[in-house]
Amino acid sequence: MTSPEMTVGELVDLLSGCDRNGLVRQAMNPFFPMAHRLAQVVQSVDETGQLVVYLAEGRDENSQLGHLPPEATVALAWHGPVQAPPRRPRRAADRN
């Protein structure tokens, strides 16, 4: 059985395929997706004695950057692709 949690090794493997000059941000809240700057990496032990590495957002007011781009929410499978509804022909104004 695989763990529902990601290990540091799995994170490193995923990051190794990314551009090293890319910015690091955290995507949060699938129902109202926002992007946050990461400021700290902290290693600790949880209540069960398991070693855990936490990725923390910054403390300043500019740490939350705004909405996550739609492409990111689709890639994360938080939202489905959305297309604009088809345009309907406009009706002429009734001038009586």
Rank of each mutant, 00 (worst) to 15 (best):
N29S: 01
L55P: 03
L11M: 10
P33V: 04
P30W: 00
P81H: 00
A92G: 12
Y54P: 01
S16W: 02
P89R: 08
A39T: 05
P85T: 10
P33M: 04
P4H: 08
N96K: 08
A56S: 11
V42R: 05
S3D: 12
G58I: 13
G49W: 02
S63C: 05
E71M: 09
N96E: 15
L15P: 01
G58R: 06
F32A: 15
D46Q: 09
R25C: 05
G66F: 03
V52I: 13
C18L: 14
P89A: 01
L14D: 15
L76N: 03
R91H: 14
D19K: 06
S63D: 10
M1P: 05
M1F: 02
V82H: 07
V8Y: 04
E71W: 07
D94Q: 12
T7M: 02
E71I: 09
P85L: 13
P30L: 10
Q64D: 05
M28C: 09
A39P: 06
N21G: 03
N29H: 01
R25F: 04
E57F: 03
A77K: 11
Q64H: 00
C18V: 14
V41S: 10
A84R: 09
V41K: 01
R25G: 05
T2S: 12
D13E: 15
P30C: 07
R90I: 06
A35Q: 00
L23E: 15
E61M: 10
S63N: 13
C18A: 14
R25L: 01
A56M: 14
V74K: 06
A27Q: 05
T73V: 09
R87S: 15
V45H: 11
T7G: 03
P85V: 09
E71S: 11
V8N: 01
G9C: 02
Q43L: 07
S3L: 04
T48H: 15
R88H: 14
N21Y: 06
A72N: 04
A72P: 00
L68S: 01
V82Y: 07
V41L: 08
A56F: 06
A92K: 11
G49T: 08
R20M: 06
